[in-house]
């Protein structure tokens, strides 16, 4: 693996994720999240998973982060509310996650069951056709369930975000715009 590239991307991911969890301004948090998720997408490309990397960009940068930003604007939560920003027991939370990291990291570092793996580059990145064939044959049932799940999520999200009440016409109310947002993920 190209170590410099990996290090830069790892730094980008960790810095973005930390910023997303620590910044006070919610919009800045969402943009830092975008940065971290974009870094993950770049890492997929570096590892040779082209299709997943592009899907990551399309879904996370194009849809999820925009959705989060919209939700922040719609809930008027520009800044996280001053001193009510963090929960009580903030130190406890960070300490707990540090313990989790130590346990997981220790397990990874001391494990002897991990495959050695071939560090030489792959012969060829998997073709899109191969992925498509697998999706239509071996993974057809998960694919169908996924379609069902996304349709259910689409309808559910629209119903949840729609203004309740008989007079509410979702497409003429300002809320109707919000109601249509989640639909993007249902495709």
């Amino acid at each position: 693996m190209m170590h410099p590239a990996f290090l830069i991307i790892a730094l980008l991911i960790v810095a973005g994720a930390t910023a997303a969890m620590r910044l006070r301004n919610l919009i800045h948090c969402a943009l830092a999240l975008t940065c971290a998720l974009g870094g993950v997408g770049l890492l997929y490309l570096l590892l040779g998973a082209q299709f997943v990397g592009f899907a990551q960009f399309l879904v996370y940068i194009g849809a999820v982060s925009i959705l989060i930003v919209f939700a922040i604007l719609l809930t008027h939560g520009m800044d996280g509310g001053g001193d009510t920003l963090f929960s009580r027991g903030r130190a406890l939370g960070w300490g707990l996650s540090l313990v989790v990291f130590a346990v997981l990291g220790g397990a990874v570092m001391s494990s002897r069951m991990l495959p050695e793996g071939s560090t030489e580059p792959l012969a060829s990145t998997p073709a899109v056709r191969q992925i498509g064939d697998l999706l239509m044959t071996r993974y057809i049932l998960p694919l169908e369930i996924m379609g069902l799940l996304l349709t259910a999520a689409l309808i559910g999200a629209v119903l949840l975000a729609m203004k309740s009440g008989a007079s509410a016409m979702p497409h003429t109310q300002p809320g109707g715009k919000a109601a249509t947002q989640p639909g993007r993920d249902g495709q």
Binding site: V14, M21, G80, F86
Partner: peptide, 13 residues
């Protein structure tokens, strides 16, 4: 990444 996400989910309000 997991630990940072966990910390955020636990500490933010």
């Amino acid at each position: 990444l997991f630990a940072i996400g966990l910390a955020g989910a636990l500490t933010r309000r």
